[in-house]
Computed example of a mutant assay.
Amino acid sequence: MAPRRERPKRRRFSAEFKAAILAEYEAADRADRGAILRREGLYASNIIEWRKAAAAGAQAGLGPATRDRRDKEIEALRARAEKAEGELARTRAALDLVGKAHALLETLSESAEPAKRSRQ
Rank of each mutant, 00 (worst) to 15 (best):
M1F: 06
A2N: 04
P3W: 06
R4Y: 11
R5A: 06
E6A: 13
E6R: 15
P8L: 07
K9Q: 15
K9G: 04
K9N: 10
K9I: 10
K9D: 07
K9Y: 04
R10K: 15
R11E: 05
R11V: 04
R11M: 01
R12L: 14
R12Y: 11
F13R: 00
F13I: 02
E16I: 07
F17E: 05
F17T: 03
K18T: 00
K18W: 02
A19H: 03
A19P: 01
A20C: 05
A20L: 11
I21T: 00
I21Y: 00
L22C: 06
A23N: 06
E24R: 07
E26Q: 11
A27R: 15
A28N: 07
R30N: 12
A31Y: 06
A31H: 11
D32T: 06
D32N: 08
R33F: 04
G34E: 05
G34R: 04
A35I: 14
A35V: 15
L37C: 05
L37S: 01
R39N: 03
G41I: 05
L42F: 05
Y43T: 13
Y43L: 15
A44D: 08
S45W: 08
S45I: 09
N46K: 02
I47G: 01
I48N: 10
E49N: 12
W50G: 01
W50K: 00
R51T: 06
A54W: 03
A54L: 15
A55D: 14
Q59D: 12
A60T: 13
A60K: 11
G61S: 06
G61R: 00
G61W: 02
L62V: 09
G63I: 03
P64C: 02
P64I: 01
A65R: 12
A65V: 13
A65I: 11
T66H: 08
T66D: 13
T66I: 12
T66C: 08
R67D: 09
D68E: 14
R69M: 09
R70L: 14
D71R: 13
D71L: 15
K72M: 06
K72N: 07
E73K: 10
E73Q: 14
I74H: 11
I74K: 08
I74F: 11
L77A: 12
L77G: 02
R78L: 05
R78H: 08
R78A: 04
A79G: 04
R80N: 12
R80M: 11
A81I: 08
E82F: 07
K83E: 13
K83N: 11
A84R: 14
A84F: 08
E85G: 03
G86L: 14
E87T: 01
E87P: 00
L88A: 15
L88N: 06
R90T: 08
R92H: 05
R92C: 03
R92W: 04
A93M: 06
A93V: 05
L95N: 11
D96F: 09
D96W: 07
D96G: 15
L97V: 09
L97H: 10
G99W: 07
G99Q: 12
G99C: 09
K100F: 08
A101M: 08
A101Q: 13
H102C: 09
A103C: 02
L104V: 07
L104T: 10
L105G: 10
T107Y: 02
T107R: 10
E110W: 01
S111K: 10
A112M: 08
A112P: 02
E113H: 04
E113G: 03
A115Q: 10
K116P: 01
K116T: 11
R117P: 03
R117S: 10
R119T: 10
Q120D: 13
